[in-house]
Amino acid sequence: MKILICLSNVPDTTTKAKFVNENTAFDTTGVQWIINPWDELALTRAIELKSDAANSIENITVITVGGKDAEPTMRKALAIGADDAVRIDAEPTDAYYVAAQIAEYLKSNPFDLIFSGIESADYNGSAVGGMVAEFLNAPSVSAVSGINFDSGQVKITRDIDGGNEDVSVELPAVLTVQKGIAKEPMIAAMRGIMMARKKPLNVVAPVEVEALTEIANFEMPQAKPACKMIEPENVKELVDLLQNEAKVI
């Protein structure tokens, strides 16, 4: 069994969004880059599953579409426990473009399970996993909050809008994963960091694909009026304001 994990290289979640070039580009000054949090959970779960020999997972590969600046993030994934990494050398212009590149790679390098975070912390498109599956005409399961192996079968739990379901699918399949799949992201140990330097990070040339969308510009949220403070003894006043001023209760 081979698992591929689609990684996004995103700004640390504490980053404040700022833009340059008349609000057409994200200001990367001083930004720390991390593995997209949901992708990191996917990687963590894959490593947990691999550590049980009964699951016979031979390989975990991480893949990204990005420039050389994405490599430290890929090395981090290798340090955590991925076996090898692939970087498709192109700027990730939109989700369709990224998914087309990953699908193209998968056509000549088949995997049994493909994991993708349900969302990326930058463009919040929730799109790449499902798109890859459609390009490959493979099944996909979305909002996955549990993955287990049971005598060669992959047992999946997915969240539906108002509950959850136990699901199994034919492989190869794409699973887009969310919170719940792993408890906490795994942290790289010193030995892992040393070993990561020797693990393969293959750079692949992109294929020609035309993006379907384009960001025209960015806007900052409108500033909120100052918070109206109420004394803790006066909760009645708060309830009155919620009822008669904000009209929300």
Partner: peptide, 24 residues
């Protein structure tokens, strides 16, 4: 809808119809 079901379907539909996706 941008909910669990919509997130499962919209990306696939985008590829199937070669239609750009505006998510959320």
């Amino acid at each position: 809808a941008q909910n669990n079901m919509g997130k499962a379907l919209a990306p696939r539909l985008s590829v199937k119809m070669k239609a750009g996706l505006g998510a959320g």
